[in-house]
């Protein structure tokens, strides 16, 4: 077996260990690589920024604690952007983890009160409901049909911000957060198409290609993965956890690319040698 052929049979553990080491290095010694902004991220930011002050943004929050590392930079930069522009926000969670993540974010990391917000007047948290697509449809048609009270048990009619809001017509922009790639279709079918509601989306890196077919017609912009979170941090001027993660991704992916190259070199070497033997 030639040296080139052996490149296709390297013990996987070398790939694992080199990736782990290279991923860890930037966490200890940050590199600070520059970030290039992509169009979906720019449009996502513009959709929030272009709203008149005091507009209502509904956040359909389907965050997952297990996948938070991939998305936390997106969330924190988004909350900071929204609060700094003075928009009203209506949070509702579609996953069990959602309320806990929001509690951590709004209670500690990005407190709305630090931006002059008052609960009930400028932002409301509705808590968890297992909505799914029919639930999103129901929410868009009649919010009180799904949530009679907020997460603290206060009837929605007692919250000043909610007095005039009971369906899609009170929502100026919907931010749809999801982690199951095909869920993007829910918001297209239940918000964008029937009510022409403006929608932006945040999701995992692997789900970006499935959101792309709906951009920019039904979805005005989207963030996919921690890289997009870093871009939003840069674009909005709100630094966060995305930068360190981008450095780690940059370096940690190198062994995988090298191994893919090795696999291809070995394949063609074997093919060439087989041809030689046949002749």
């Amino acid at each position: 077996m030639s040296v080139l052929s052996k490149l296709g049979k390297i013990d996987y553990r070398w790939l694992y260990i080199t990736s782990l080491i290279l991923t860890a290095i930037p966490l200890v010694y940050p590199i600070g690589l520059s970030v290039t902004l992509s169009q979906p991220v720019k449009d996502y930011y513009s959709a929030i920024q272009d709203l008149p002050e005091g507009s209502v943004i509904a956040v359909s929050f389907g965050g997952s604690a297990s996948l938070l590392d991939e998305q936390e930079a997106q969330f924190l930069a988004t909350w900071k952007t929204i609060f700094s522009l003075g928009h009203k926000v209506l949070f509702y969670s579609t996953t069990e983890d959602g309320p806990m993540i929001l509690q951590d974010h709004l209670g500690d990391k990005v407190k709305p009160e630090d931006y002059g917000y008052t609960y009930g007047e400028d932002y409301v948290e509705l808590g968890f409901s297992p909505l799914g697509e029919p639930g999103e449809a129901s929410f868009a048609a009649n919010i009180r049909g799904v949530y009679a009270a907020d997460k603290y048990g206060t009837p929605l009619d007692d919250l000043p911000m909610m007095v005039d809001i009971n369906d899609y017509s009170g929502i100026d922009l919907l931010m749809f957060q999801y982690t199951a790639c095909t869920s993007i279709e829910w918001v297209v079918r239940q918000w964008s198409v029937p009510y022409q509601t403006k929608v932006i989306a945040t999701t995992l890196g692997c789900c970006g290609p499935m959101a792309a077919p709906y951009y920019p017609s039904q979805i005005e912009g989207f963030l996919s993965g921690s890289g997009a979170g870093t871009e939003l941090e840069v674009l909005s001027g709100n630094p966060g956890p995305g930068a360190a993660m981008s450095d780690s991704k940059s370096i940690g992916i190198l062994p995988q690319l090298v191994f893919i190259a090795f696999g291809n070199i070995a394949y063609f070497a074997n093919k060439y040698m087989k041809k030689e033997d046949d002749q």
């Binding site: 996987y12 790939l15 062994p255 995988q256 893919i260 696999g263 291809n264 394949y267």
Partner: peptide, 13 residues
């Protein structure tokens, strides 16, 4: 780990 090793095995032209 599974994704990395499977990419090594299957991302072949």
């Amino acid at each position: 780990f599974t994704l990395a090793s499977s990419a090594y095995r299957t991302f072949i032209a």
